[in-house]
Amino acid sequence: MATESSLRKDRPAIEVRGLYKSFGDNEVLKGIDFHVDQGEVVCVIGPSGSGKSTLLRCVNRLEEPTKGTILVEGVDITDEETDLDKIRTRIGMVFQQFNLFPHLSVLRNLTLAQQRAKRRGKSEAVETARRNLAKVGLDNRENAYPAQLSGGQQQRVAIARALSMNPDMMLFDEPTSALDPELVGDVLEVMRQLADEGMTMMVVTHEMGFAREVGDRVVFMDGGVVVEQGKPEDVLGNPQHERTKAFLSKVL
């Protein structure tokens, strides 16, 4: 049983060992070893189909790994006995398509899981929600419905929703890819602010500028394996592998 006391803060936030994932005959991840340290911001880049989103989705087991081990703060989330719902409250996730609940107001989007999954009382949930809405600059929109917000605002609400669970780490799955270009900046700004506060972050992204400026480490994936990783200036500025060079020459 994974209890809160068994979560080890001295362990890497995320530790992936020998991870394989297949969809039918299609092997998407071919033996990934990967980790994110406490307080570290790791940006995962790579061409589409490289498996980077699948890797991220395995970390909170939205995808079921075919083989391998995934430890979150020392707890094996692939273990049958692990209370997955409890672990998930400690891992915030932000989706490419925002995935706000369209039938609920902004405030209710933020309080629902606090009350249902964390068993917080209503007043505490509302207070936490308002604090996080203020953090993403949307404290005046708590009564709006998602459809009334721009894409950038929706994504900031989604970030605030994840933060309202007080997670230890945040997963971002291409958070700006579905946004109009002029709305990308606000979302990246919120993410930069989070990084500055010391949040542990795993970010699958195509925003090379963000990876360079905010990332502590950049991981380049291609064909279901980690090809190259290191400091952003090294990987992005002086790539060692041909595949990295070929990818960067297309996106930079």
Partner: peptide, 13 residues
């Protein structure tokens, strides 16, 4: 499916 995924990722059973 993203709706279910969002709810589950927030720890809702």
């Amino acid at each position: 499916p993203g709706q279910r995924e969002a709810a589950r990722s927030l720890g809702m059973n």
